[in-house]
Amino acid sequence: MSHHPLLEVRGLQTRFFTRAGAVNAVNNVSFTLERGKILGLVGESGSGKSVTGFSIMGLVDKPGRVVGGQVLFNGRDLGQLREREMRKLRGNRIAMIFQDPMMTLNPVLRIDTQMIETVLAHKKVSRAQARELARDTIGMMGIASPEDRLMAYPHQLSGGMRQRIAIAIALLHQPDVIIADEPTTALDVTIQGQILSEIQNLTERYGTSLIWITHDLSVVAGLADEVAVMYAGRIVEYGSVSDVLDRTTHPYTMGLLNSLPSNNRHGTRLKQIPGMTPSLLSLPDRCAFADRCAHRTQACERMPERTAVSESHWVRCFNPILIEEAA
């Protein structure tokens, strides 16, 4: 029997058809995710990382549309499923945690009502059993007094507590894959650290695979197994955490690393990547990062293909940073 990765994304393309023209939000993105592994999807705002997550889930709203590529889950092409079949998978085998927990939580319903309905949507159990599962899942997230939390309305909870509840809802059915779209960005560092630790423990316990979407490479360093760095709708560098963070080869990845406060001497100005992300409406038919890159040469007037750095590490760049140069 042939082995399928749990999730395989092949040449994914998503466009938004606006009056101004077609926005190439996700442009030929490919990666695989094995069971129990965590992939960090990293990039600036507007790089296409969130739209990649929504495209996998089949949640791209008009005027957006997936126009090419495949998303294979356990070997099944999700693009070929009817909406009813996709709904069976969504929230059950594949779940998403949003940046704003209020995208998950209904402000006018108590937490227990929302969690019980989520359980009953996919499991044939009694309401009492569904409530018990909801309470236990909240407890697993390290939330004290889960019974009291179940009786609360979302507005009665803090931002960190709401996000924990939203994560608990995503975990209710012990899904195979969770896509987390910057769920800790709005939280303070202490709460963020606690939630990251809880997520890591839960993925280890259940063998759940995770795509963690973020702009913060320091979060990915302590959480992920593999990293995909996105720029202007494309993955520009991909590999294991140690490959991408310790043997960085793409100038954009190096720019992201250099802009972290921890990588700058105290009292000095933060290093910034010059310029702006190009408009996804009119992407040049060449390296999209060229205008901001100190390593630019004549070769960059063409579109870079994937180049292997090692067996587990590739980059889209004509002038990759050499390891000795980066050291």
Rank of each mutant, 00 (worst) to 15 (best):
I199K: 00
T190R: 10
R87V: 04
N258Y: 11
P101I: 14
A170R: 00
I97R: 06
G48S: 02
K49G: 06
G36W: 09
G64Q: 08
G160R: 01
Q298V: 14
L280D: 09
G142Q: 10
I94G: 00
G40E: 02
E83H: 08
M303T: 08
L171D: 00
S47E: 11
M254G: 11
G267Q: 12
M96Y: 05
Q174Y: 07
L322A: 15
T18Q: 09
R296H: 10
S282L: 11
G46Q: 10
A95D: 05
L6P: 07
A294Q: 12
I273N: 02
L245I: 01
E324C: 05
I138R: 10
R149P: 12
I178W: 08
A221G: 04
Q272K: 14
L81N: 03
N24H: 15
T277P: 15
E237Y: 00
R35K: 15
A294M: 13
L157H: 09
H266A: 11
I179K: 04
V241L: 09
W212V: 03
G233V: 07
H3V: 12
E198T: 13
R234C: 03
N258H: 10
R234Y: 07
E324P: 03
L283G: 02
A152F: 06
I165K: 10
S126R: 13
S262I: 13
R135M: 15
V23E: 03
T214L: 00
M141K: 07
H215L: 02
D181H: 10
Q80N: 14
M276N: 13
E325K: 04
V9F: 08
N263C: 05
A25G: 06
H295T: 14
D246S: 14
L109E: 13
I169R: 01
L202M: 15
A168I: 00
F73L: 15
L150G: 05
Q163E: 01
V108S: 06
L12G: 04
S197V: 11
G275S: 02
L270M: 08
R265Y: 09
I97A: 03
D285F: 09
E204C: 08
G21H: 09
Q80Y: 11
S2Y: 10
T248I: 01
A228H: 00
N201T: 12
I179H: 00
